[in-house]
């Protein structure tokens, strides 16, 4: 079982890397057109300390932004899930806010909070990732079948008890589904800020410096590092989901 869970995805990754290598070699592409997997280990090794330092910065900023997005998204989703008026009022605002390309927001934030690079990056990660959480929680709460509420209301249960015992657990699968989307979005937010803002740090800045010095293998290495971090965080969410909402998973037959 565990063999299958590890070996199958691992084999898929290896096949992907092999196909990539073959594609580059067969076409004889130089590394400024497309680096091949064999170019990557030297790039990683050459900048190993920078990768560790910047990788950590990117990771903690993303997690911090995501954590704020979870708290804010949950609160907003609850407000919108329970009050129809607030839902009607906030939806257009929220959709409009989400529709604004975040790349255009980066310079505004960078100007607003000059020099606050950590803060700006976390803010960006948060702003880009709270939307799916808020929407899914509000939908989960507003579509709660009235009978679920009635079985407790008929006993004289308080609103808080109904929320704690019914609404919250019932919404958890939707919440985790949204969180999986938000994880990857948060990385996009972090990197947008790291790449665009001058004198940035983090993997995004490393990518930018690779671009400036025409170090193509480094640029590809950063992409792979980002993908690896994304996979890592994604599976942390999967693990949390199994703990808190494992009941929603149908046993495999």
């Amino acid at each position: 079982m565990i063999w299958r869970k590890v070996a199958v995805p691992l084999a898929a990754v290896l096949i992907f890397l092999a196909l990539w290598e073959i594609l580059v070699q067969a076409n004889g592409w130089p590394d400024y057109k497309m680096a091949s997997p064999s170019d990557l280990p030297p790039a990683f090794w050459k900048y190993r300390w920078l990768f560790l330092e910047y990788g950590w910065q990117t990771l903690w900023r993303t997690v911090a932004g995501l954590a704020i997005a979870v708290v804010f998204g949950l609160a907003l989703g609850m407000v919108m899930g329970f009050s129809r008026t607030l839902r009607d009022a906030l939806y257009p605002l929220l959709v409009g806010f989400n529709a604004v390309p975040k790349a255009t927001v980066v310079p505004i934030i960078a100007l607003l909070f000059v020099g606050q690079h950590d803060f700006n990056t976390v803010l960006m990660a948060f702003m880009i990732s709270f939307f799916p959480i808020a929407v899914s929680v509000s939908i989960g709460l507003s579509t709660l079948e009235p009978e679920y509420r009635d079985i407790l209301r008929a006993l004289g249960a308080s609103r808080l008890a109904i929320f704690r015992k019914i609404a919250l657990p019932k919404t958890l699968p939707e919440f985790f589904g949204a969180l999986k989307v938000s994880v990857t979005l948060a990385f996009i937010g972090t990197n947008l800020m790291e790449i665009v803002s001058p004198h940035g740090r983090g993997l995004g800045a490393l990518f930018d410096s690779g671009k400036t010095s025409a170090d193509y293998p480094l640029m590809f290495a950063v992409l792979i590092a980002l993908a690896a971090l994304g996979i890592l965080l994604f599976y942390v969410v999967v693990w949390l989901e199994r703990i808190f909402a494992g009941w929603a998973e149908r046993p495999a037959s």
């Binding site: 079948e145 009978e147 679920y148 009635d150 079985i151 209301r153 008929a154 006993l155 004289g156 015992k165 019914i166 657990p169 019932k170 958890l172 909402a245 009941w247 929603a248």
Partner: peptide
């Protein structure tokens, strides 16, 4: 006038909590 604890209810949908 309001719900009371001396009432029990069952519906067509069993509404069991899956978790």
């Amino acid at each position: 006038k309001s719900p009371r604890a001396t009432v029990g209810m069952a519906f067509q949908n069993p509404v069991l909590l899956e978790w």
